[in-house]
């Protein structure tokens, strides 16, 4: 019992010591993490399953009917794998909905929160593009 208490205290210390780092996640400074945008009818052009981050490129028609080439990043394969992502989760030509935190610069770039496929399946990026609540839930489940 004493040993287990020591272990649990150590776990508490770790989480206390590291909690700030979760909310100062690398790369997010360029993005507006308070404004989540849903981009519907996004046609996938490429999906790079790679380090440091996976990259999804897709086309969206703007309000004037012009095609805008978007780029969204997710966590690395190691980071999003536990959340169901694989190299085959999406393919060029597929039409999806992309939930994304957009770059502050106003360019068509962002951090992906999740994508929703045509068949309704959702793939969330909790480590990089997750909301604070989503990250806490993942921690409770011991995923991240």
């Amino acid at each position: 019992m004493k040993g287990k208490l020591a272990v649990m205290l150590a776990v508490v210390i770790v989480f206390l010591a590291t909690s700030a780092s979760v909310f100062a996640h690398h790369g997010n400074v360029a993005y507006d993490m308070k404004d989540l945008v849903a981009l519907k009818n996004a046609t996938v052009t490429k999906f790079f399953w790679a380090n440091p981050h996976n990259i999804l490129t897709f086309d969206i028609k703007d309000d004037n009917g012009n095609v805008v080439h978007w780029v969204g990043e997710t966590g690395s394969p190691a980071a999003v794998g536990p959340f169901g992502w694989t190299r085959d989760v999406v393919h060029p030509g597929e039409v999806v909905t992309v939930y994304i935190f957009r770059a502050k610069a106003g360019t068509p770039v962002g951090i992906i929160n999740k994508i929703v496929l045509a068949d309704g399946r959702e793939f969330k990026d909790v480590p990089l593009g997750g909301t604070d609540a989503e990250r806490e839930e993942a921690k409770r489940k011991g995923i991240e």
Partner: peptide, 15 residues
């Protein structure tokens, strides 16, 4: 892959 990321994502994200 890092160079691809920089060109496709990091640079445009920074404007």
């Amino acid at each position: 892959e890092a160079a691809n990321y920089e060109g496709l994502v990091a640079a445009p994200a920074a404007g």
